[in-house]
């Protein structure tokens, strides 16, 4: 007689989908807050976005306060 042993996981696993979404949120928001120099808006706005840097200015003070390189 053969028995199939199932090892029941007591703890429900960490859901992969949620982790995937969190990684995407982490990368996107981190780029926006800490590193964008006009890149995101340039996708629709083109070159002027690099001069206006709306995103950079919006996150500007936070960028300094959290230790990111700025000006």
């Amino acid at each position: 007689m053969s028995t199939i042993r199932q090892i029941a996981k007591e703890v429900p696993r960490v859901p992969r989908i949620a982790v995937g979404i969190l990684v995407a949120i982490l990368l996107f928001t981190m780029f926006m807050v800490g590193f964008d120099q006009g890149h995101l808006f340039s996708i629709v706005q083109g070159q002027p976005a690099f001069d206006n840097m709306w995103m950079h200015e919006f996150y500007h003070d936070m960028r300094h306060a959290s230790g990111f390189p700025c000006h």
Binding site: I25, T29, M30, V33
Partner: peptide, 12 residues
């Protein structure tokens, strides 16, 4: 932007 920027930084 400060408050919204803080919230986004926190979420990140």
């Amino acid at each position: 932007g400060a408050i919204a920027a803080g919230a986004v930084y926190g979420i990140s």
